[in-house]
């Protein structure tokens, strides 16, 4: 079956790794701001950015032993909530190769794994590409 990439206004090409800088937070804030403005957005996560949506994270981060009653949502939960809130205007893709290479093939159901050989389809299916970080 041929996969047709849904056209978006902006693609966030998220290659930077989490836990290095505030890049991931900036990407999420930018996505939310674009969605607030009515734009359609797709995120293509490569490299260690594929870790953000690992199914193994569960809904929450491990318990904070200093504040056991405070819930800290995992990035998988935050991204799932974002996708659920904007089903018609947000798509989150993860690079299938990077997922396999880095042991992250088990992803949350809301994201789509795509082969890197099809990456240019996504570039063509968006008005602008914003490159965020490097692998």
């Amino acid at each position: 079956m041929v996969f047709a990439v849904r056209h978006t206004d902006v693609m966030l090409k998220l290659l930077g790794a989490p836990h290095r800088t505030d890049l991931v937070t900036s990407a999420l804030r930018l996505a939310q701001a674009l969605l607030d403005e009515g734009a359609a957005v797709q995120v293509w996560a490569c490299g260690d950015a594929t870790a953000l949506t690992c199914a193994a994270f569960g809904d929450s981060k491990p318990v904070n032993v200093a504040e056991r009653t405070v819930d800290h949502p995992s990035t998988a939960t935050v991204i799932r909530e974002l996708l659920t809130a904007y089903p018609d205007r947000l798509d989150w893709y993860v690079c299938r190769f990077c997922c396999a290479e880095r042991g992250r093939s088990e992803q949350i159901a809301e994201v789509l794994k795509r082969p890197p050989s099809q990456f240019w389809q996504h570039v063509r299916a968006t008005g602008k590409v914003v490159a965020m970080g490097v692998c």
Binding site: V24, T25, L28
Partner: peptide
């Protein structure tokens, strides 16, 4: 070094 993913 990361806000949303790091938190506490």
């Amino acid at each position: 070094r990361g806000a949303v993913e790091t938190q506490f």
